[in-house]
């Protein structure tokens, strides 16, 4: 009987893409990975799903129908809030970066999962879990552009990545260090991933590991 725990609470959730520990400017700032290169980022979109709150390692709240599309500079600008039907304390959150395989084989869905959101592949069924696009002089591509569209749900191409992060009470703010991610990718040779496969799955897991608490 948890009568004392009744009530509602709203928990703000935010992911901040960072470069050198500062929020990324997705408009027109050029950053440097080393002295001789420059990188500009203009698209970051990702799905967060299956949110669970933990207290001392025990799940205390599981968000129903938990699918959130976050977009830098988009309508929500990488944030949303969870309207929980009960009050609970928590010290850890868990979620998936991406969309699970059951949802990927369930046909067309609405809300943040609507195929008009630009996060569904048309030529081969499946959600794009994460999009990161930009430009760098390292890329000998058209307009020096690079695109990472990471997705895939079958056993061989599973790009969904679980995340568990220790947090404190109050709004949840997590950082994702894109400078660290890009330092680990050789942009000269690896600058365009648009299909599910081992390469996409590997990058998706690498980027998920960079999610950690962030102090604004």
């Amino acid at each position: 009987m948890q009568l004392f725990a009744q009530g509602r609470q709203e928990i703000a959730f935010k992911i901040v893409p960072t470069f050198n520990a500062r929020p990324v400017d997705f408009e027109h700032t050029y950053y440097h990975l080393t002295q001789s290169d420059s990188v500009m980022l203009d698209v970051f979109k990702c799905y967060i799903s299956n949110l669970v709150f933990y207290s001392a390692g025990r799940a205390v709240y599981t968000e129903p129908n938990s699918f959130h599309l976050l977009e830098a500079g988009g309508a929500n600008n990488m944030q949303f809030s969870i309207a929980a039907g009960s009050r609970f304390s928590y010290d850890e959150v868990g979620f998936d970066l991406g969309i699970d395989s059951t949802t990927n084989v369930s046909g067309t869905l609405g809300g943040d999962l609507d195929p008009t959101k630009g996060m569904y592949w048309s030529w081969q069924s499946g959600y794009i879990n994460l999009k990161l696009e930009g430009k760098s002089n390292l890329c000998k591509t058209r307009n020096h552009e690079f695109q990472f569209h990471l997705g895939g749900y079958s056993n061989e191409t599973k790009a969904i990545a679980p995340v568990r992060v220790k947090v404190t009470a109050g709004p949840i703010v997590l950082g994702i260090a894109l400078d660290k991610f890009l330092s680990n990718v050789d942009l000269a040779t690896n600058n365009s991933i648009m299909i599910p496969g081992a390469a996409a799955a590997s990058l998706a897991h690498k980027i998920a590991q960079l999610i950690e608490p962030y102090k604004e």
Partner: peptide, 25 residues
């Protein structure tokens, strides 16, 4: 077998540049 469900089948010809070359949005 690129498409796994009838509901998302139409997305393929709508988006294919050699077919309808359009965007569902």
């Amino acid at each position: 077998g690129a498409v796994n469900h009838l509901d998302v089948q139409a997305l393929a010809p709508i988006s294919n540049t050699l077919e309808m070359d359009e965007d569902i949005a």
